[in-house]
Design a protein around this nucleic acid. Structure first.
Lengths: 251, 251
DNA sequence: AATTATACGCGCAATTTCGTGCAATGTCAA
DNA sequence: TTGACATTGCACGAAATTGCGCGTATAATT
C-alpha cells in the first residue's frame, strides 16, 4: 500500500466513522504507530483533519457521519429515550423529527402500543419497521444528508394535512432569550411547521444543548409543553424554562 | 510492446485497481523502474494520473476509495448490481424503488457520479447519505413494513411532479404472458406510476423471478427497455423478452 | 495530588524510491 | 550509410519513508 493511498484511506475511515484511533489504524494496516502518527500530523498540517490525543477527528464535527454519532454515548441517551417513549399514549398520532435521540425513543416505544408515527427521518422509519402495531407515515422531500431527514417545500406541504397529538422535537438548542434554534434553515422551517400542527411539543434536551443557541430560530420557548433532560442538571439552569410553565422531566 | 501501448496499460491497471506501484509494474512488464517512472511522470504531466511516492493514484481520489472498498467487502458485491449501477449516467434523474438488490445498486454507484435519485425506500435513501454528489429525494407515504417502501396515495401524488430519465425497477416477477407483476397491490400501483414517468425502465431480474407471476399486475413487458440478469441463464428463457426489443444484459 | 499507563515528538539509521546525467540501442528518413 | 531523434537501462547522489529507542507530555486512576 502506497503512502498517499494510506492517507486517503485514513481520511475515508475518518469520514465514515467520525473518528480514527492511531493504535487501531496501525494494527489494521500492519504498520508502526509512528508511521500513522506521522500521517496524522501531516494530514493535520494540510488542514484535512484535526489531531487529538490518541487519534484524529474531522475538521468540522458536522462532517462526522451520522452512523458514528449513533454509537456515541448510548447509555446517557437511553434514559432520556425511555422517559420520552413513555409519554406516547395509546392511539395517538405522534410526530418525530430526526436525530439519534429520537431514534432511540422510537426503539423504546412499547411493543403493545398502538399509535401512528409521522416522521421525516428515514432511519427512524426503518427502526420502526419491526414494531407490530405502529403505523408509520414517511414525509417526503429532499434528503438533508447531514442529519438524515427530509426537508424542503415538499415536506412542509405534506405536513399541511397533519394534526398530531404530540411532537417529539429532536435535538436542537434551547436558550432562555433566543428560544428554540437549530443549525439548518430548512430544518428550522420544518420544526416550526411541526410545532404548529401538534397539540403538545416535547423537547429532548441533552445537557450540552441547554442554554446554547444556533443560527436559525425555530420559535419561542413558550411553544414547548415539556422538556426531558438528564437528572444531573442543576435546578438553576432549568429555572428559566420552568417559570414559563414548561413541564420538566429529569430522566 | 510500444510505449503508448504500455502507458495505456498503466492507465487500465490504475482504473482497475485504483493504484499502481512502480516496482510491481516494472516486474510485470520486464522493464526497468526508470522507464515506468518516466511513464508515470509523463502521464502525470498530461493530467491522467496523480504521481505519488512509490507509484501513482487516480486523479480523483474517489475512484481509489471505491476500488479499495470493493476489495474490503468482496462478498457484498453482486454482478447484477454493478451492471445496473453502470447504467446510470452523469446528470440523470433516476427512480429507485425498494428491494435489497436496488440498495446494492445504489451502493455501487460511482463516487464520481453526479445525479438525482428519487426513491420510496428509506433504507436506500440512508444508503446514499454518504455519497458526495447524489441528491436524494424521498417520496413520502405510508410505510409498507414488509418491503420497507412507502406506498399509497401520498406517494403516487408526489410522483406526479416527477419526470425521470431512468427507473430502476426492483425485484418483481416477469412472465411472457402475464407481464410484470408483484405481491402487493399498492406496490403495483406505485410501480405502474413510476414506469409512466420514466423514459427508460430497467428491470433487475434474478433468475428465480423470470417466468414467474405474482397476484398484482404492474403492466406489460413492453414497458421495459432493459433487463439485467445473471450470465448463467439460458438463451431460450430470455428469448420471449428479447423478441420484444428489450435489451438483455447478462452480468 | 500522586501514580501509572499511554501517547507523543524527536533523532537516528536502514531501506526504498526518485531524479538526472550518460551511454547504448532502436527507428526513421534523407 | 548516415545523422537526428526517441527510448531504454545503468550509476549515483538526493530525498522520502519507515521502524526503533528514548525522554517527555498527556490522560486516566487511585
Amino acid at each position: 500500500m502506497l503512502t498517499a493511498e494510506r492517507r486517503q484511506f485514513i481520511l475515508t475511515v475518518l469520514h465514515r466513522d467520525g473518528t480514527v484511533v492511531a493504535k487501531k489504524l496501525s494494527e489494521e494496516l500492519n504498520l508502526s504507530e509512528d508511521t500513522i502518527r506521522r500521517d496524522l500530523r501531516d494530514l493535520a498540517a494540510e488542514g484535512l483533519l484535526q489531531r487529538v490525543h490518541g487519534g484524529a477527528l474531522p475538521i468540522s464535527p458536522a462532517v462526522a457521519n451520522f452512523a458514528s454519532r449513533q454509537n456515541q454515548e448510548p447509555g446517557a441517551k437511553s434514559a432520556i429515550a425511555r422517559a420520552a417513549a413513555s409519554m406516547v399514549r395509546e392511539g395517538q398520532v405522534v410526530l418525530f423529527d430526526g436525530g439519534t435521540t429520537n431514534i432511540e425513543v422510537a426503539r423504546n416505544l412499547s411493543q403493545d402500543l398502538h399509535a401512528t408515527v409521522i416522521t421525516n427521518s428515514p432511519p427512524l422509519a426503518v427502526a420502526l419497521a419491526d414494531h407490530p402495531h405502529i403505523e408509520v407515515i414517511m414525509l417526503g422531500g429532499h434528503l438533508f444528508k447531514h442529519s438524515l431527514v427530509t426537508v424542503g417545500v415538499a415536506t412542509l406541504d405534506a405536513l399541511q394535512m397533519v394534526r398530531a397529538d404530540l411532537y417529539m422535537l429532536g435535538i436542537c438548542s434551547l436558550h432562555p432569550k433566543v428560544g428554540i434554534s437549530t443549525v439548518d434553515l430548512d430544518e428550522a422551517y420544518l420544526k416550526r411547521a411541526m410545532i404548529a400542527c401538534s397539540a403538545e411539543v416535547v423537547a429532548l434536551a441533552s445537557p450540552e444543548k441547554i442554554n446554547t443557541a444556533a443560527p436559525y430560530i425555530v420559535g419561542p420557548l413558550s411553544e414547548l409543553t415539556d422538556i426531558i433532560t438528564e437528572h444531573g442538571i442543576s435546578d438553576e439552569m432549568l429555572e428559566p424554562y420552568r417559570s414559563l410553565g414548561i413541564t420538566i422531566t429529569r430522566a
